[in-house]
């Protein structure tokens, strides 16, 4: 990747997570540099979602540190939130707001400039093939359309770090291709992608982290 590497790497050291009295993972290290992608693999309940929530700052790690370069993310949660897009299991679509209204609200929270935000919303809608649905209320959307509306947030306001929890759920093959294209563009412009998945998502040169019950190993994917 010949990306403009002005961003410091996003790293975690010795991360541990305890849920309901059980150690989900411990001693986990990872690092994502500008233009890189990280794929979290592991069986159900191995802590992929928990790790993504820890990375987003929704969950406090029981042990370890998260940092951008040398600065801890917990020291500046608002700056971390501005750099991050988190896509979880829920689509956060309001049934009574239209697709464009839903998207514009989230875009405006990240992008204070109204004109730029609404430009980005339009571009994002057409990129995800939602332009013809822009005035449809959220309650009329199918599961896949809701998911795409949620994913459209990624482009509606620029943020370097994308944290995605099984983003391909409910997407058809064509839209997975679209998403892969969006990832490639994001990485080419120096963005970072971290995602968990059970399906094959084409991310050239992505690193993988296997989350097993306790032991964690990191390896380079030779793709």
């Amino acid at each position: 990747m010949n990306a403009p590497n002005d961003l410091p790497p996003f790293t975690g050291h010795g991360l541990g997570c305890i849920r309901g009295g059980r150690v989900v993972f411990a001693g986990l290290d990872f690092s994502v540099a500008a233009g890189e992608a990280l794929v979290l693999l592991g069986p159900n309940g191995s802590g992929k979602s928990s790790l993504l929530r820890v990375m987003a700052g929704l969950l406090k790690p029981a042990a370890g540190k998260l940092a951008w370069g040398a600065v801890s993310t917990q020291a500046e949660p608002e700056i971390h939130a501005a750099r991050t897009h988190y896509v979880g299991h829920h689509d956060a679509i309001k049934p009574v707001l239209s697709v464009a209204e839903n998207l514009r609200f989230w875009a405006r929270l990240h992008e204070p400039d109204a004109a730029r935000a609404s430009d980005a919303v339009d571009r994002s809608l057409s990129r995800f093939g939602l332009a013809h649905l822009r005035d449809i209320p959220g309650k009329m959307l199918s599961a896949g359309q809701k998911r795409r509306t949620n994913l459209a947030r990624l482009l509606a306001a620029p943020s370097p770090l994308w944290l995605l929890d099984e983003p391909t759920t409910a997407l058809d093959r064509h839209n997975i291709k679209v998403l892969e294209g969006v990832f490639a563009d994001h990485r080419a412009s120096g963005g970072m992608v971290v995602l968990s998945t059970h399906q094959d998502v084409d991310l050239p040169g992505a690193r993988t982290v296997h989350l097993d019950d306790f032991g964690i190993e990191t390896e380079e994917d030779p793709a």
């Binding site: 987003a56 929704l58 700056i79 501005a82 979880g88 956060a92 309001k94 929270l109 990240h110």
Partner: peptide, 15 residues
């Protein structure tokens, strides 16, 4: 809380 908006609101880049 139920539809996941709250997570995103918590992650809003402001207090």
């Amino acid at each position: 809380y139920e539809d996941g908006s709250l997570e995103l609101l918590v992650l809003t880049p402001t207090s």
